[in-house]
Design a protein around this nucleic acid. Structure first.
Lengths: 246, 246
DNA sequence: ACAAAAGTGTGTACTATTTACACAATGGCA
DNA sequence: TGCCATTGTGTAAATAGTACACACTTTTGT
């Protein structure tokens, strides 16, 4: 393949009058979106995977991905993929990073943009489970297709950072939750043990947990109080961070 | 143009045996890399821009960008662009985000991946200045071509966060610098005023500033001590962060 | 009915970190 | 020599983080 496009790098070129002609001559690549969907269940962080439908990777697991369409916003593509693969809608999605290594796909150059989504496994039943779609414990992933292990690692790092600065975790819990559930979530994601009393103190001091007056009911010990997240209070009080520290 | 590609979304398809055939049928898009190069001079954060060579944007400023080549790693593309446009080498570069809005380029769909670079204006003289390449004060950018204002905004936010967690700032200073220079840098980037004594205390306590025994000499007041960054000490002591706070 | 098991709910003392703040010392310049 | 600008330095108070123990509530088993 030989290109004739006028590279923008040639200095002091005459002005380009036709933008479409310029772009028409650009080399083109395939671009996919991959969704890294984290969920939380049995005190474990999980990620949603399917079996790759490429024969060479058929014994490996793969993220939910698809090619992006010519006139489709990437974010829409991510939602489409989620919907088509799992039946889920109404999720929270964020772009994390683009993976572009020349050799990352065995079929040729394919760029992928990773979108990350956190959701409550109970609230988002899988309506479609083709290709063995199911939740995998993050701590025991098998071999992954493509560079998907790397993508998951990046997204997991992103998540660990993100959850310390934004109240994302509440997306992974039922609307009403006990403080223990909240703590389990943080411990699972950050992969640390936290002091129960200090954890409570911390979250109460942030002052957006609302006592529902209700209690846990299906536990085999003293039931804990159930709280809910008060979004309005959070928005009012959220701090902006200045804390140089490295 | 009509595509016949087998979308990965059709459930329970037979296994795909030819990866190349699959990818060959994917829709393709043009992808560019844009470099957001921050520098620091006269106590101001600056960004390197050129005049767009698209006629319709010729009265606007533009990031340093170019199309990525078929077999080129994006990071390499970013370095190539930097080198070709400015003559600079030996810089620090990081991918920040991908901008993919359908309508972001007037000539058709063009995806761009933003790479951010921080460098010392004095140490990296511009060897090429075609297309009116020069440093613009971040606080007084004119109209920008494409969505480049948005890209800069994102990169600036990224920088503000990043510089609080990693000692990037030292890239923007001479090898030997006074604490005042360091503080000016942080104040400029974070857009706040900091207490001089507390700022010093903070950085000394991090214990990677090395007293060079030298002093400033071209200032019209009592010269300050010059320090340098001790990379090895930093690597030894850098903390890992756990601090839920939002 | 009672005891044991499991986990909730609570407070305090200690330490580290952050913040606010003022005055003496140095070199340049007129 | 005196004035200006800016460096260099310490301490007290407030805030945030850490470590830690005991009484209470419910379930389960006998």
């Amino acid at each position: 393949m030989s290109y004739d496009h006028k590279t923008a790098l040639a200095p002091n070129m005459p002005l380009i009058t036709s933008a479409s002609e310029l772009v028409g001559n650009y080399p083109k690549m395939a671009i996919t979106v991959d969704c890294v969907i984290f969920g939380f269940e049995d005190n474990k962080l999980k990620v949603l995977l399917i079996r790759s439908d490429l024969q060479m990777y058929n014994d490996k697991w793969s993220l939910l991905g698809d090619v992006t369409l010519a006139n489709e916003e990437f974010e829409d593509a991510a939602y489409r993929i989620l919907k088509t693969r799992t039946g889920m809608t109404d999720v929270y999605l964020e772009q994390v990073r683009t993976f572009s290594q020349v050799a990352r796909h065995p079929g040729g150059r394919v760029i992928t943009v990773a979108y990350c989504s956190l959701l409550n496994i109970r609230h988002h039943q899988l309506k479609i489970t083709d290709n063995e779609l199911h939740w995998h414990s993050l701590s025991s992933l098998g071999d992954m297709a493509f560079d998907h292990q790397q993508i998951i690692d990046r997204c997991y790092n992103w998540l660990q950072k993100r959850i310390q600065e934004h109240p994302l975790g509440f997306n992974l819990l039922p609307e009403k939750f006990s403080l223990r559930e909240l703590q389990n979530l943080y411990e699972a994601i950050l992969n640390v043990e936290l002091d129960r009393r200090n954890f409570r103190k911390k979250f109460f001091s942030m002052d957006f947990l609302e006592d529902t007056g209700e209690f846990e009911f299906d536990v085999k010990h003293r039931p804990g109080k159930l709280y809910q997240f008060n979004f309005a209070k959070y928005e009012k009080n959220k701090r902006k961070w200045i804390g140089i520290d490295f």
